[in-house]
Amino acid sequence: MTRMTTNLTKPISIKLLFAMLVVTIGAEVLLYLTRYSYLASTFYDAMMVSSFFVGLKLHPRISSSERFRLTKRQHVLKFTGAFLIFFLGSTIINMYSSNIFNDFNADYDQYVQDYTDMQMDVVEQKPTADDSETKAEPVSSFFEKVDAIGTDLYTDALAGLEEVWRLAYIILLLVVCKKLFPNRWASGKRDLFLMMALFLTSILFGIDHTLDSVEPWGVKIGAIVTFANMGLLFGLILLWTRSLWVTVLVHSLYDITATLSWYYLDSAVDLMALAMLIVHVFLLILEKLNRKRALQQLETADGVQAAE
C-alpha cells in the first residue's frame, strides 16, 4: 500500500485540484440544497456527470501496473468478485441495521413504499381523451412507465460516480497528511494515513445520505451508520481492486437492481448476485484451465530444451 499512497499523492495541477474540490465540497453543498430546491438536484446530477471526467484523471493514480497485463476474462472476474463481496457485505450490514436501528429501518421501508406507490399512481392515472387520443394510449402508457422508473435508474447510474468523490477526498486527505506529518510520511508508515482517509470518507458517505432530507435523530443516526458501513465496503473494494471504474460499476449496478426490487421483483438483487456467482465460477474454472494448459506447455517446452 505504500506504493499506492505514493502514487495517490503525486503532484497535483491547479486545474485538477480545483476540479477535485468542486466534485467533493461543491457536490456536498448541492446535495444539502436539494432538500430545498429541485434546481439544486439538477445541478447535483450535472456535477455527477462532470465527475466522470475528473475520474479519468484520478484513475491512473490508484490503478496498479498489473492492469496492463490482465486479460478481459480477469477484468470480468475482478468485477464479479467485487460485486459478490459487496452483496455479501451489504446483506450483513442490512441485517445488523434492521436489528439495531428500528426507527431507521421502519422509516426507510415506509419511504420506499410511499415513493413507489406515488410513482405507480402517476402511471395508472387515466386522463379523459377522445377516440384519436385513445388510439395513442399504448404508446403514451409505455413512456409514462419509462418516465416513472427511468429517472430513478438514471440517478442510480450516476450514484456510482460518487466513488470519484471518494477517491478525490482520499487523495486530498493524504496530501494534507503528507504536509502536516512529513517525518512520519517519510518513515514509510503511510498505511495508517490511508486507513484514516478511508474511515473519514466512509463517515462522510454516511452523513451525505442524510443531507437531502430532514429526519428525527433516531432515523438519522441509523442512516449514517448504515450508509457509512456501505461506504467503507465500497472503499475496501476500491483499494482491493485498485480500479475506480470497477467500483463505480459495482455501485451503479447494485443501486439499479435495488430500484428494480422496489418496483417489480423483490428478489432482483439476489437474482443479480446469483447470476454474478454463476458467471464468476464459470470464468474462474476457465481461468484455472487456461493456467493449467499454459503450465503444461511450459513444461513441455522445458522438456524439449532439455532433450536437445
Score class of each variant (00 low, 15 high):
Arg3Ile: 07
Thr5Trp: 08
Ile14Gln: 13
Lys15Trp: 11
Leu16Gly: 04
Leu16Pro: 00
Gly26Tyr: 01
Gly26His: 01
Leu31Thr: 11
Leu31Pro: 03
Leu31Glu: 06
Tyr32Gln: 07
Ala40Pro: 06
Thr42Trp: 13
Asp45Leu: 12
Ala46Gln: 00
Ser50Val: 14
Phe52Lys: 05
Phe53Ile: 03
Gly55His: 02
Gly55Cys: 03
Ser64Trp: 03
Ser64Asn: 13
Glu66Gly: 01
Glu66Val: 09
Val76Tyr: 04
Gly81Lys: 07
Phe83Ile: 01
Phe87Tyr: 15
Leu88Pro: 04
Ile93Tyr: 00
Asn99Phe: 06
Ile100Val: 15
Phe101Gln: 06
Asp103Val: 05
Asp103Ile: 05
Phe104Tyr: 15
Asp109Ile: 06
Gln110Ser: 14
Tyr115Gln: 13
Thr116Ile: 06
Gln119Trp: 01
Met120Phe: 04
Asp121Trp: 02
Val122Asn: 10
Val122Glu: 11
Pro127Trp: 08
Glu133Asn: 07
Pro138Asp: 05
Ser141Trp: 07
Glu144Tyr: 06
Val146Arg: 04
Asp152Phe: 12
Tyr154Ser: 14
Asp156Ile: 00
Ala157Trp: 04
Glu162Phe: 12
Glu163Thr: 08
Arg166Trp: 05
Arg166Glu: 06
Leu167Asn: 11
Ile171Lys: 01
Ser187Gln: 12
Phe193Glu: 02
Thr201Ala: 10
Thr201Cys: 14
Ser202Trp: 07
Phe205Ser: 07
Ile207Arg: 07
Thr210Glu: 00
Leu211Ala: 02
Leu211Met: 13
Asp212Gln: 08
Asp212Leu: 00
Glu215Met: 13
Pro216Asp: 06
Val219Met: 01
Gly222Val: 02
Phe227Cys: 00
Phe227Met: 12
Leu232Gln: 04
Gly235His: 02
Ile237Leu: 11
Leu239Ala: 07
Val250Tyr: 03
Ser252Ile: 02
Tyr254Lys: 02
Leu265Pro: 03
Ser267His: 04
Ala268Asn: 08
Leu271His: 12
Ala273Cys: 08
Ala273Asn: 05
Ala273Met: 05
Val279Glu: 04
Val281Pro: 00
Leu283Cys: 11
Ile285Val: 15
Leu295Glu: 15
Gln296Thr: 12
Glu299Asn: 15
Glu299Ile: 11
Ala307Thr: 10
Glu308Asp: 13
